[in-house]
Design a protein around this nucleic acid. Structure first.
Length: 634
RNA sequence: GCCGACGUAGCUCAGUGGUAGAGCAGCGGUUUCGUAAACCGCAGGUCGCGGGUUCAAAUCCCGCCGUCGGCUCCA
């Protein structure tokens, strides 16, 4: 065995991971909750006997891997507690997750939030008893029969689905036993810091045709301190929730007359328009032409595009002059019309058509949320019509553009994934191969690190997805580059090649910010409402010390507004401290205080968010500072 | 859509069967103040909507609307 220190050690055949850990030291032995062989695969149970030479990594309780083991055991303890409280509980599945664990159960009693402390108390008792987890190999057929006899329909179904020949194991602690692959901690006492978080409904196997189960979510850590930190992180994330900040900062509102459809208020509209302007400026540099297209189309169009067959559930319909019409959920069909309106030459390609058209997509009532999942939205949408051999260069260009845009927002990380041909797809193998290698080639040429999601492409073409991490480490899907062989076919798009023959262009769907609504929601949380100067709805606020200073303050506001900056005023007769506080709560980047001193010197006292005193500064210097921040988009 | 929770003043929330409350915001007044909350007063509600139970409903029951947390990271 080779361990982390690189020193080879010898053990008898069948020595368990736990025994190896103890042989190295008492401390490591006690901390050990599992192991991993050759740095890959699943975490192994610490009871696993070692049967060959390998590189062994001891998984300790106080690590991400260790937490997985603890959480899995916590799920068992939860199930045990539920059975003790409600003996009719039928267990479904109870895995560890990225952030915690859950158990899906079926029982007559409706578990309410008030039950959670009761369940926690029952769990704490089991933890305190420090029962050892035992692993045992069982006979599949026997267990399936037993499960059926007990009415344990879910376990029976799982047992049925297990691959023949694979070892079937149970884990037991105290009176409780559960079908389980493991791994588990040595005893229930290892689950030192846990908390149940919420209840939820969940369909058996995630399929809405199946029974609705009750799910209980919780989390667990090796130490109380880590649990506290986790709960604190959740609280901090709640503070920057875009729905809460959107209301507080007057960015947008919602109203039952238009469910899941935001009303952007004046301040939110500034941000929206600023983002549109950002993209429009880039469109000039990157060779796009913007168009404005209709909102409502005869259904005939959606039959041609295939949306009627495949996307009808998400579309809004209406009857106009006895014709069935649909509100557009996407811009692409309009753009194919624009492309197909005249005979196109290879010289025109790639033809880049951008559109900020408003889209409507019906989302199920339970699926909508704030600005991130809405029923009407606008994408920074564009479609590029290109010759197949232009794909790689065009995608390379897009990568540069995307890089430029994401760079402005200071996302700590951008993750890129290439999705390839799914089982059911249209287009020849040859076309797919070329398209996939063009995308991969462009990514490599741009030096982008990316992962591959095999078979995850759309049926009509491969794609590249961009996901960013925000300021507190959450991942969001933003942009996408999607090749499409289907629509050019359906709309019979053609261009004339240099040889004078007709050829079929490829369509590239692409968005960088994605939906503006969603993007705004994400950056509200990313910036915690403290937008950079160029995006701030109000960039500066002018405050007076007393009424004598109002005329000077007014001339200052006027001068800044005339220079194109978004400035407001607080000339109320509150105390300066109160006005400063209001400006801070409004997350205004700069506060300009005007008093007798500033009037005498023809300056302004500058205060920068959150509370940096920048001293007195002349109006000219101030304008210079503002212009610089605006130009550098800071 | 389904499971669960929630919906009281512009906002945040208290009020569990007996006359609808607080703080902030708003309005009026006093105060003219130098970097995170001055003081006094006034006004503000079909308790989401509709129905039911009751002498009496914000409160209990039913339906609807909306919002929020979830709805395979497969033993």
């Amino acid at each position: 065995m080779t361990l982390k220190d690189g020193v080879p050690r010898s053990f008898a055949l069948g020595t368990t991971i736990r025994e190896v850990a103890f042989s190295i030291g008492e401390g490591l032995g006690k901390a050990c909750v599992g192991g991993r062989i050759d740095g890959q695969g699943a975490i192994l149970d610490l009871r696993t006997p070692l049967r060959r030479d390998a590189r062994l990594e001891i998984v300790t309780a106080d690590s991400k891997d260790g937490w997985q083991v603890i959480r899995h055991s916590a799920a068992h303890i939860l199930a045990d507690a539920l059975l003790s409280l409600w003996p009719d509980t039928k267990l479904a599945i109870g895995p560890a997750t990225e952030e915690g664990f859950y158990y899906d159960v079926d029982l007559a009693h409706r578990i309410t939030p008030d039950d959670l402390p009761k369940i926690e108390a029952a769990m704490a008792k089991i933890v305190k008893e420090d029962r050892p987890f035992e692993r045992c190999s069982v006979d599949r057929a026997d267990e399936t029969r037993k499960a059926r006899d007990h009415g344990d329909v879910y376990k029976a179904e799982i047992l049925d689905g297990l691959p023949i020949g694979e070892e079937v194991t149970f884990y037991r602690h105290g009176q409780f036993e559960d079908l389980c692959r493991g791994p588990h901690v040595p005893s229930t006492g290892y689950v030192k810091a846990f908390k149940l978080l919420r209840t939820a409904g969940a369909y058996w196997r995630g399929d809405e045709n199946n029974a609705m189960l009750q799910r209980i979510y919780g989390t667990a850590f090796a130490r109380e301190k880590d649990l506290k930190e986790y709960l604190h992180r959740i609280e901090e994330a709640e503070k920057r929730d875009h729905r809460k900040l959107g209301k507080e900062l007057g960015l947008f509102m919602m109203h039952p007359v238009a469910p899941a459809s935001p009303f952007f208020l004046p301040k939110g509209t500034v941000i929206y328009n600023r983002l549109v302007r950002l993209m429009r400026d880039l469109y000039v540099r990157y060779g796009y032409q913007e168009v404005i297209t209709p909102q409502v189309f005869d259904s005939q169009l959606w039959h041609t595009s295939g949306h009627y067959e495949h996307y009808k559930e998400n579309m809004y319909f209406t009857i106009i002059d006895e014709r069935e019409c649909a509100v557009k959920p996407m811009n692409c069909p309009s753009h194919t019309f624009i492309f197909g309106m005249e005979r196109r030459s290879y010289r025109e390609l790639p033809l880049r058509i951008a559109d900020f058209g408003r889209l409507h997509r019906y989302e199920r009532s339970g699926a909508t949320a704030g600005l991130t999942r809405v029923r009407t939205f606008c994408q920074d949408d564009a479609h590029i019509f290109a010759a197949p051999e232009q794909i790689q260069a065009e995608v390379g260009r897009l990568l540069a553009m995307i890089n430029e845009v994401y760079g402005l927002f200071g996302f700590p990380e951008v993750r890129v994934a290439l999705s390839t041909r799914p089982a059911a797809s249209i287009g020849s193998a040859e076309v797919w191969e070329k398209a996939e290698s063009a995308l991969a080639g462009a990514l490599q040429a741009s030096g982008v690190n990316y992962t591959i999601n095999p078979g995850d492409g759309a049926f009509y073409g491969p794609k590249i997805d961009f996901r960013v991490l925000d300021a507190i480490g959450r991942e969001w899907q933003l942009g996408t580059i999607q090749l499409d062989f289907n629509l050019p076919e359906r709309f019979d798009l053609k261009y004339i090649t240099s040889e004078g023959s007709e050829a079929r262009p490829v369509m590239i769907h692409r968005a960088i910010l994605g939906s503006l609504e969603r993007f705004i929601g994400i950056i509200i949380e990313h910036y915690s409402g403290q937008f950079p100067f160029w995006l701030s709805p109000v960039q500066a606020r002018v405050l007076t010390i007393n009424d004598d200073h109002v005329p000077y303050a007014q001339s200052l506001t006027a001068r800044l507004s005339e220079a194109g900056f978004r400035v407001d005023e607080d000339f109320s007769n509150s105390k300066t401290g109160a006005k400063i506080r209001d400006a801070r709560l409004a997350r205004i980047p700069y506060v300009l205080v005007v008093g007798a001193k500033e009037i005498a010197d023809q300056t302004v006292a500058l205060r920068e968010r959150p509370d940096i005193d920048r001293g007195s500064i002349s109006i000219d210097r101030l304008l210079e500072l503002f212009r610089d921040q605006e130009n550098r988009k800071q």
